[in-house]
């Protein structure tokens, strides 16, 4: 996990047509923690949501054979149940609830150990890659995550 570049996931560990699981380790140090909060570093709630959204995004992109990209359009029913500290190992799970035309709705969960720390219903739009360069960059990132060979 690299907070400054929004690279939230470290590794995709499971995937089928309707579900993706990824793991990540929160860094021990980051400029983000300098402000959030001084002397009391915790992962911002919006970044917990981002972890789930990225798991969902990769699930959708993989389902579409890397022909399109996915962007977050809506966060519903979000619950941030626990605080996540530097060094924590997290597991994000995205489950497909509905595959629409140009969009998908997913249930995202984020857990530390056996404890659920966040959950949300996420709506993602799908769209063509705006440039070959971005498509190549996303494919390279997918390979890092173990999603592509």
């Amino acid at each position: 996990m690299r907070l400054e570049t929004f690279e939230m996931l470290d590794r995709v560990t499971e995937r089928d047509e309707a579900r993706l699981v990824a793991t990540m380790r929160v860094p021990d140090e980051s400029p983000v923690f300098e402000g959030h909060f001084p002397g009391f570093p915790i992962l911002p709630g919006v970044l917990m949501v981002e972890c789930m959204a990225q798991a969902g995004g990769w699930l959708i992109v993989a389902r579409l054979g890397f022909a399109r990209m996915a962007v977050l359009a809506k966060v519903g029913e979000a619950k941030l149940r626990g605080m996540v500290k530097p060094g924590a190992t997290l597991t994000a799970t995205a489950e497909l609830l509905h595959d629409g035309s140009g969009y998908a709705v997913l249930r995202g969960t984020l857990a530390e150990g056996g404890a659920r720390v966040a959950e949300a219903e996420l709506t993602l739009r799908t769209l063509p890659f705006p440039s070959p360069a971005l498509e190549a960059a996303l494919r390279a990132r997918a390979a890092q995550l173990g999603l592509l060979p």
């Binding site: 629409g100 969009y103 739009r125």
Partner: peptide, 16 residues
């Protein structure tokens, strides 16, 4: 988008 999702669910279709 929300309306299309609701229609998809209500009618069991995928509005193209």
């Amino acid at each position: 988008l929300d309306i299309v999702f609701a229609i998809d669910k209500a009618f069991g279709v995928k509005v193209p």
